[in-house]
Amino acid sequence: MIKSSVSNCPVPTEQQPLNEYEELKTSWLFRDSTLNWRKYITKIVWIWSLSWLVAGPVAAASFPPHKYIAHFMLCGAAGASVGVVLALVRLYLGWFYVRDRLYSPTVFYEESGWYDGQTWTKPLEILDRDRLIVTYGIKPILRRLQFTSAGLAGLFLIGTIVWRLL
């Protein structure tokens, strides 16, 4: 029954919300947010570590490590966290966009260009399927990203307190 409704769907294949979801799940950055907690945190730490390649020299120029090791470490860690923040924002916005497309009862799509957009109303069985995907597939990822962002904000707060105590 779902097959017939999907076959009547006028939305181009690459713009169908389910296909956008499947594509997002397999893309290199976005699939990392679907991993178990240990692997996910490992990927976040990798991003943070690679960000040190830029943040470290900038922090060293501001606070020479041989004189101000604590300030250098805090400044470098905060600077490297910018890479993590950018990655989290990109992940959140991507998943949020697909969540909205899946959850919506209508789908806006473009037939041949930006100037001729159309709207398709999903049949009930497709809407139910898409909302189940949102509930069990995307909402846990968005919660994980929110939790990670809150944890990062907490680390920034701790770093700020330590900085003030130095």
Rank of each mutant, 00 (worst) to 15 (best):
E111Q: 03
E111S: 01
G159N: 14
D116T: 04
M73S: 08
P17S: 09
L91W: 11
G117W: 01
G151P: 04
S104P: 00
G113C: 06
Y68V: 07
T13A: 07
P140H: 06
A70E: 13
V82I: 15
L88H: 07
Q146I: 11
F156Q: 05
R99S: 05
L102G: 10
K3T: 08
P140M: 09
Y103M: 02
Y21H: 11
P105I: 03
G151I: 05
A77G: 06
A59G: 06
V54A: 14
K67F: 15
H66M: 13
W46T: 12
C75P: 00
R164A: 12
E110Y: 04
T106Y: 05
R131T: 04
W46E: 15
Y109G: 01
V134P: 12
L152S: 08
R143C: 14
W46N: 14
N36D: 10
H71M: 00
I69E: 10
A78P: 00
R38W: 05
T160D: 08
L24A: 11
R129K: 10
L29G: 02
L29C: 05
W52H: 14
D100T: 11
I158C: 14
P17I: 10
P57C: 06
P10I: 10
K39N: 04
P105V: 04
L53K: 04
D128I: 08
A60V: 02
L155A: 09
A55K: 04
W120G: 06
W37C: 00
Y40V: 05
W46D: 15
A80L: 10
A87N: 09
R38E: 10
I41L: 08
S5H: 13
I141Q: 05
L166E: 04
R129A: 05
A87Q: 11
T148R: 03
I41E: 02
V98C: 09
D100W: 11
W52F: 15
Q118T: 01
A78D: 11
W28F: 13
D116F: 02
P123D: 07
R101C: 06
T135Q: 14
K67H: 15
T121A: 09
I138G: 10
Y68Q: 14
F72V: 02
V134A: 12
D32N: 15
V54F: 13
A61W: 13
V6W: 00
A80I: 07
L165V: 07
S112M: 06
T119G: 01
T148N: 00
A70V: 13
W46M: 09
W114K: 07
T121L: 10
D116A: 01
R131L: 03
L74T: 00
S149I: 09
Y136C: 02
